[in-house]
Design a protein around this nucleic acid. Structure first.
Lengths: 187, 187
DNA sequence: AAATTCATTTGACAAAAATCAAAAAGCGCC
DNA sequence: GGCGCTTTTTGATTTTTGTCAAATGAATTT
C-alpha cells in the first residue's frame, strides 16, 4: 500500500471499495526542483500529497515571491482558493526539493462523494487537518515575532532549513532575506 | 425554519431526519456585549452561528489582546484549536455587539456522523468554507500592508467599523491603535 | 451641567525592519 | 586549483511602526 493510502487510512479506516476509488483518482510522479505544478490565473482541479521532497505554494506581491506554504513529507499542497471554488487561483506551486508526489484528481473525488460516504469523511478530516495547520501558521504570523517564527520553524522542520534557500524561508516568515540572515546570525 | 438551518440547507439540502438531529444539538440564545462564550485553557465542545450581532475570537500575547477573528451575521465562531482536537484552547470568545446565536453541541454532531452521511457532508462543507475564509485572511495579513487591510475590511464590513472599538480593530489588523488611527486620519 | 469614565487622536521619540549597495562565502565546472 | 555563478552576510541609511505620554473628544452618571 502506498504512503498516501496509509495516510488516509489513519484518518479513517478505508474499505476496499473506497480504496479502489481513491487509487483510480491518484497518479504518482517524480518531480524535479524548480518544476511548476500550478500557475496563478488557472483553475486547479488537483491536490498533491508529498511522499518525499518539498513543495512550495507562493504568490506574487509587488513583483516579489511570497511563500504561503511549504509542504513537507506527509503533507498536502494545493491551490485551495481554486480547488474548492472553481475560481482562478492566485497561487503558484513549485518544487523546492526533488519530490515523489501523489496527485489526486479532485473531479473524480468530488463526483463520488454521494456514493462513497467514507470519502466524504476523508474529505472532512483532510480539510480539518489543513485548517488546523493554517490556524497554527496564522497564530505564528500574527502573534509572534520574526525571531520566534524562525525558532519555531527550526524546531518543527530542522532539516528543511538546510534544504530551502534563504530567500524562500524569509518570505515564508514574512521578513526580508537580510533580516532573516541577521536573526540567524545572532546567537 | 431558523436562519441557521437555512444556512445549512444552502450548503447541502437537508432531509427531515438530519434536520431533526441538528435541531436537537442546537440551542438558541441571546448574549450581551462583553459576555464570555469561551475562555482559554478550557476544552471547547461547541461552536456558534451568528444570527445577529458580532462575536470576537482573540487571545493574549504579552498581556495584550490580539483579535484572531470577528464573526458577523451568517458566520460561525469557535475555538477550532480545541473543538477538533480535544486539547485546551488558547482562544477567548466574547461578544462585541449584542447577539443572537445558535450554539451547536459538537459532541452530539460528532457521534452522529456515522449514521448521518448528510451530516458528514455538512461538516466538510462548513470546515471548507471556514478554511477558505482563513486563507483569505492569511493572504491579507501576509501579502498586504496595514492600510490595504484596513481598506479591505472597510469594503467587506463597512458597518462593522462603526460598531467595533478601535483597539479591537487594530489588533485584528495587526497594528497598534495609534497606527490605525493615523491610517484612518490620512485621506 | 459638571464630573467621571472610556475612546480616539496627536506628538515626540525609540525600536524594528526594509532598502540599497557591496563584500564574502559556497558550489559546480573546466 | 581557479573561474563564474549563485547564495548569504555585512554595513550604512531610510522608512515604517511601536511606545510612551498627553490632549482631545464622546458618552454616561450623578
Amino acid at each position: 500500500m502506498s504512503l498516501f493510502l496509509d495516510y488516509l487510512d489513519t484518518l479513517a479506516p478505508l474499505d476496499q471499495r473506497t480504496k479502489a476509488l481513491v487509487e483510480s483518482a491518484v497518479k504518482v510522479s517524480v518531480v524535479k526542483k524548480k518544476e511548476f505544478l500550478h500557475k496563478a490565473g488557472t483553475v486547479c482541479r488537483k491536490f498533491h500529497f508529498v511522499e518525499s521532497g518539498i513543495l512550495r505554494v507562493y504568490y506574487y506581491k509587488d513583483g516579489k515571491e511570497v511563500t504561503a506554504w511549504f509542504a513537507f513529507e506527509g503533507m498536502t499542497a494545493s491551490c485551495i482558493d481554486s480547488l474548492f471554488t472553481g475560481a482562478e487561483t492566485s497561487y503558484y506551486i513549485d518544487v523546492v526539493e526533488d519530490a515523489k508526489i501523489h496527485t489526486v484528481h479532485y473531479d473524480i473525488i468530488e463526483r463520488s462523494f454521494v456514493d462513497y460516504p467514507l470519502l466524504e469523511r476523508l474529505g472532512r478530516l483532510m480539510v480539518t487537518e489543513n485548517y488546523l495547520l493554517l490556524d497554527q501558521r496564522m497564530k505564528m504570523m500574527v502573534f509572534h515575532s520574526a525571531e520566534e517564527r524562525y525558532k519555531n520553524l527550526l524546531g518543527d522542520e530542522p532539516l528543511a532549513l538546510q534544504k530551502i534557500p534563504l530567500n524562500y524561508l524569509a518570505s515564508y516568515l514574512n521578513v526580508t532575506q537580510e533580516t532573516l540572515s541577521r536573526i540567524r546570525g545572532k546567537k
